[in-house]
Amino acid sequence: MASTDQPAIVADHLEKTFAVRHRAGRLRRHRIEVRAVDGVSFRVDPGEMVGYLGPNGAGKSTTIKMLTGILTPSGGSLATLGLDPTRHRTELAQRIGVVFGQRTQLWWDLPLADSFELLHHVYRTDRRRHEENLGSFVELLDMSSFMLTPVRQLSLGQRMRGELTAALLHDPALVVLDEPTIGLDIVSKLAVREFLVNLNRERGTTVLLTTHDLDDVEHLCQRMMIIDHGRVIHDGGVAEFKSTYGTHRTVVVDLVDAAPPLDVLGTMVTRVDGPRQRLRFDRSTTTAAQVIAGIVEEAAISDLSIEDLVRQVYDAGG
């Protein structure tokens, strides 16, 4: 067993490139190298709870797949719980728990309870420890009413609670959660969050989670990493992140015709791309409604949207 002070994850200049073939003409094919992860370095200590954010295609899933041994890095070095993930894949599998929000690891046609029993055999866990864990998870996640229901008949929220349990029954030191709250109703979302906080506090389990939901990160994590275009563009405390970006919002406006930067009270134009302009404003001094009213007075617009916090960070980093 690894000692407790050993880092949970150490990634050093981690890289992953894919060769993507695509057709050019009838027979010729181009090979294009795509850098999905481009020199990512970070370290996660035992007991940390880290949010890993980024837009689709930024390299989040690729990083997770490397951490768990599904993909081999093309460059850099990586140790998960002190092990080289691809070389020691099955050994590592015994010590980590993974939930991919969109894909089930439960047995579709069997009662939930059967899946847990099967996982007891797959992970060869101690019988008493298994019963103990299962009992406490069933209670914490309030699952007793649907333990005998076939998984295919569970609601998404019920299934996700099952998935979490399935990933944790073998006492993993590290859990990796990919979009654990996606599509959940508010009650399930809160139940899952409370459970994860509890897990981290009571058992000291290290948690790495990816999400699109900033709320998740605010409630769960002390630390967040943001990745875009394969690079980490922010790594730090959640509180610090909010004070930097918290009160600012950006309005993206598409004008009918290209125009010089708009002059609207309380805003600053940060970028002009032809007819598209980005205006940054501070929520503590003005409101979105006022800003929009100001823009409409200035020019004819065809489309308008307000970007959230994370998008702004991507822009700052990219």
Partner: peptide, 13 residues
């Protein structure tokens, strides 16, 4: 379908 990952994540060949 991308479901092969599930098999890679379990401690069995």
């Amino acid at each position: 379908l991308g479901t092969f990952d599930r098999f890679l994540l379990r401690p069995l060949p």
